[in-house]
Design a protein around this nucleic acid. Structure first.
Length: 557
RNA sequence: UGGGGUGUCGCCAAGUUGGUAAGGCACCGGAUUUUGAUUCCGGCAUUCGCAGGUUCGAGUCCUGCCACCCCAGCCA
């Protein structure tokens, strides 16, 4: 738990503005926000920032935050994604009442508003094709030109719009456009399309509709319908605010929502856009949306990252309007912080056999070891010890560098929670690498023993060969080798900087107590990092995911 | 060449009536440590994109530049 970020009151520019509004009694002092994802993909770290902001503001100002599916485009959306979104928001620790809201809940009201706009001469049916409309929009520096259908009579527009709804036309035959200003320097105001014909079943409304409203028209009205006071969105919508305001200004509201923009999250060595994440999944570069290497909430969860780490992260990143890219180190710091209190265990990822020459073949001992070093008298587990052990391959070197604090010929190290051993000799395998160590053990070296205080090179982890549980352990690394995958200019783009070593699978050996761990429960394998059983782990074949390594201040390895 | 934004330490980010640069991450020391982890102390921007100006005094006000981001979906 990070008390600092949990208790400190958010004080970014949006919080300041909301506080001011509330103090001035705006909206009757009410604060209502909303998190409005489109159910066309899984939520990722970028969404976490928005979720924490929106739900966080509601919490901080004793308000409410709605979860609203922005489901106005049945061509791309599905309930599979909507379900995943609910799961992820809940997992992050936020609640939105009994149900999420849906833009599709408002289709009828949205239609009525459109009719009103038509009646007031503020919207018209354009019967040109997409290309013609695009050509008339003009460019960034040239104004657009008005559609020949712009001056249709209200009666004709009404009849046409009703016919569109009735299903009398094919896709693309007509669109409804807001009549604003084709000469505006803001392209969004050049008579934006607000309804299009899509003869497609919608995941929630089925075949009830064959016309669907566009985002700019739908979003602001949905906010108003729900009494949203502060509509927080990312910077790219700044240009849309005049349109947001234009639509709302055509009606009167008890609560008139206001849009405020903040910069989206960018993180080094990853991609944070649904389009790119979708490509990773679709093209098979990862195993799915919840692949532990994905920056999706589902992936992070499967990896073992606690939700608190993400909330802490979002809090530390802050909210501003400046574009920036956060270093991976900050996220890692938050994850390690949240996991420090996890139980400890011993596991060997790359086993190197060790035989203790002076330890009886049949003898066996069980050591008590605390689950956490800061609670030495607290809960314990038992660790078996015997003549045959495994230690980490990296913990032995024939000719070690100067400050090596591990095992080498003639040197002694302590086995964590156990005895001190000294390496007498070793075998070399066909590949030229050490294949087995022969050591002597000092039976007086455990705590309380005669030689317990002796100085040794260091402390290493180990497991008893006969008692250890075999397990497949997946070691994950960053998915990309370039800090800015989206910025890669080669033909393949981010595909060209995928990290070929983002996944290493190893055959590990675990201390027996680890057999009782449930999927998702994170433990620290001492000196290695944090790990948790994958959901696909079974007693017959244990599978662990590495959540993150321990901080490593040693240059070597 | 249009419109909308942003520029404070390697990264994120405070600074909102002008008064003499918070904090976090990273990094570098040093202490503790049966995890090269954790914890703990200490260090880390004479300077705020640049150039002028106003002022006793400017990151904060004015002027002019420069850099970067977003916008021409019947996507959101």
């Amino acid at each position: 738990m990070d008390e600092r970020s949990e208790q400190s009151f958010p004080d970014h520019f949006i919080a300041q503005r909301i506080r001011k509004d509330q103090q001035q009694g705006k909206h009757g002092g009410a604060v209502v926000t909303r998190f409005p994802p489109e159910p066309n993909g899984f939520l990722h770290l970028g969404h976490a920032k928005s979720i924490c902001l929106n739900f966080g503001m509601a919490e901080a100002f004793a308000g409410r935050c709605n979860l609203r599916m922005d489901d106005t485009n049945p061509a791309k959306e599905s309930s599979v994604y909507a379900d995943a979104i609910e799961r992820d928001v809940t997992w992050l620790g936020f609640s939105y009442g009994d149900h999420p809201r849906h833009a599709s809940d408002y289709f009828e009201r949205l239609f009525e508003c459109a009719v009103t706009l038509i009646e007031r001469g503020l919207a018209y049916v354009d019967s040109q094709d997409q290309e013609a409309i695009r050509a008339q929009r003009g460019t960034l520096i040239e104004p657009g030109t008005e559609s020949p259908y712009r001056s249709r009579s209200v009666e004709e527009n009404l009849a046409l719009f009703q016919a569109m709804r009735a299903g009398d036309f094919e896709d693309g035959a007509h669109v409804l456009r807001a009549k604003i200003d084709m000469g505006s320097p803001n392209l969004n105001l050049r008579d934006p399309v607000i309804y299009r014909i899509r003869r497609l079943a919608h995941q929630r409304t089925g075949d009830s509709w064959c016309i669907y409203p566009m985002y700019d028209y739908t979003h602001c009205l949905s906010d108003a319908f729900e009494g949203i006071t502060h509509s927080l969105c990312t910077l790219e919508f700044e240009d849309h605010r005049p349109l947001y305001d234009w639509v709302l200004d055509q009606f009167s509201w008890d609560v008139r929502p206001e849009q405020i923009e903040f910069s989206r999250l960018e993180l080094e060595y990853t991609v944070l856009s649904k389009r790119h994440l979708n490509a990773l999944v679709t093209e098979g570069h990862v195993a799915g949306w919840d692949d532990p290497r994905m920056p999706t909430l589902a992936g992070l969860r499967r990896r073992g990252v606690p939700p608190q780490a993400l909330r802490d992260f979002c809090g530390r990143v802050g909210i501003t309007k400046s574009d920036g890219t956060v270093e991976m180190a900050l996220l890692e710091r938050c994850i390690r912080d949240a996991l420090e209190s996890a139980p400890r265990a011993l596991a060997v990822l790359h086993p190197l056999p060790v035989e203790l020459l002076n330890y009886p073949q049949e003898r066996e001992e069980w050591f008590d070891a605390p689950l956490h070093p800061k609670a030495p008298e607290g809960a314990q587990r038992r660790i078996p010890f015997s003549r045959h052990l495994f230690i980490e391959r990296d913990d032995f070197m024939e000719t070690p560098p100067k400050k090596y604090k591990r095992l080498s010929p003639g040197e002694a190290v302590r086995l964590r929670h156990g005895y001190v051993i000294r390496c007498e000799r070793f075998d070399v395998g066909a590949d030229g690498a050490p294949s087995k160590l022969y050591c002597t053990v000092d039976l007086e070296s455990r705590a309380g023993g005669a030689t317990a205080e002796q100085k040794v090179k260091g402390v290493i982890h180990w497991v008893s060969a006969a008692h250890a549980l075999p397990a497949e352990v997946r070691l994950y690394d960053r998915l990309f080798t370039d800090p800015d995958p989206s910025g890669v200019k080669t033909e393949g783009g981010f595909r060209d900087v995928l990290n070929p070593d983002s996944l290493e699978v190893c055959a590990a050996r675990l201390e027996p107590a680890l057999g009782a761990l449930a999927p998702g429960e994170v433990v620290q394998f001492e000196r290695l990092g944090y790990f948790c059983p994958d959901p696909d782990s079974t007693e017959a074949s244990r599978r662990f995911n590495r959540t993150i390594t321990l901080r490593d201040t040693w240059g070597g390895k």
